[in-house]
Amino acid sequence: MFNFFKKNKKEYPDYWNTYAETFKNPISQDVDATSFIVLDTETTGFDYVSDRILCIGALEIRQQTIEIHKAFEVYIQQDVYGKESAKIHGILKDGVIPKISELEALQLFLRYLGNKTIVAHHAFFDINMINKALARQGLPPLKNNYLDTSNLYKKTLLKSKFITKKEQYSLDELADKFSISKKDRHTALGDAYITAIIFLKIITKLKEKKEVTLSILFQ
């Protein structure tokens, strides 16, 4: 009863504490040695309050390598359903794909993620969706650093007046620019894979200009 008003860290569930614990470990600054988690979510829509995550897809890049069996892909059972978005991602409310609860998905994802740096296209959106889901469980937002491939791409462009830099670059646009097949577009893991390849190619482009460290990417 007394503790009810004084919520402190110790009261968080174990899965969160284990996750938070990982941040005590240092993160390597070497872009080629450190691990990145490339993330994408499919959602019922774009509203942070009323929309829900239907699928989380993620994979790990380490030393420019993606191990397929380490990929993360979960489908989530939700009561909210967006007719419009279903046309895009094709996930049906009562489809045949095995689904798990949002809580379970978060537990699995936090364990998968740890303290690694997140990479996503328009990262703010995906991370915010996950944070909202965490908030529904009474948890604080993700603690990870993150990189947005849409912003990183802009760093590769020449500083020239002839190029009109856009405010945003869509995943499709970047896939075209880097000649990446758009197969499996609009599945969370498929998009995460496209994002991962874009990320690797951006790093190569940046390396041509100067040495790339993790902190340079965050600038």
């Binding site: 420019q64 390598t65 993606i66 397929i68 069996h69 390849i197 190619k201 190569t204 390396k207």
Partner: peptide, 12 residues
């Protein structure tokens, strides 16, 4: 077999 494959990116 495919599930155990690693995808490796190699710069030029």
């Amino acid at each position: 077999l495919s599930e155990q494959v690693s995808i490796v990116y190699k710069e030029k």
